[in-house]
């Protein structure tokens, strides 16, 4: 359990990175449903209310070289503190949906509590759905795989 007075989470980054990615890539509808499915939904207050802005997106020269600035994308961020144990959660999500950032932050805070298996399984389900969608897209693309052959002159 994180220390309630500690703003920074003690959840190890690899796991936290994973669930934050799933939360960011989920749709707000999916997150609403997942939130509603929780056994009890703790209250929280905003440490930072949802705020919409930009992220400057970088690419790499030649795909793997030095970075360059490709363009910008919209980004919404939010930070919440749980009423129950003071755990802090952050939401950083592409787009301009305040509720998406808020729910992502709330789930992130909840995931700090080792006891919230329901939150963990809700996120697992979202992650599984995302993988399934990606698999479907990969299969649709794979169906367009071509074998070109050259016609040699006799």
């Amino acid at each position: 359990m994180p220390d309630a007075s500690d703003l920074h989470s003690s959840a190890p980054p690899p796991q936290r990175r994973r669930w934050m990615a799933v939360l960011a890539k989920a749709s707000v509808t999916e997150l609403e449903r997942a939130w509603a499915s929780l056994q009890d939904r703790p209250g929280y207050r905003f440490l930072r209310p949802p705020e919409c802005g930009l992220a400057l997106v970088r690419g790499r020269i030649g795909g793997s070289g030095d970075p360059f600035n490709l363009g910008e994308m919209t980004l919404t961020r939010c930070a919440v503190v749980l009423d129950t144990d003071g755990a802090t959660g952050f939401g950083y999500v592409a787009g301009r949906d305040a509720r998406h950032a808020e729910l992502a932050a709330a789930f992130d805070a909840l995931m700090q509590c080792a006891t919230r298996a329901d939150a963990a399984s809700a996120i697992d389900a979202l992650g599984a759905a995302q993988r399934a969608r990606r698999r479907e897209a990969a299969q649709a693309a794979a169906a367009t795989k071509v074998e070109f052959f050259t016609l040699a002159r006799e």
């Binding site: 400057l56 690419g59 790499r60 490709l70 919209t74 980004l75």
Partner: peptide
Amino acid sequence: LPRLAVTRPI
């Protein structure tokens, strides 16, 4: 809009 972040290179 304010610029909130710079991404890592994609």
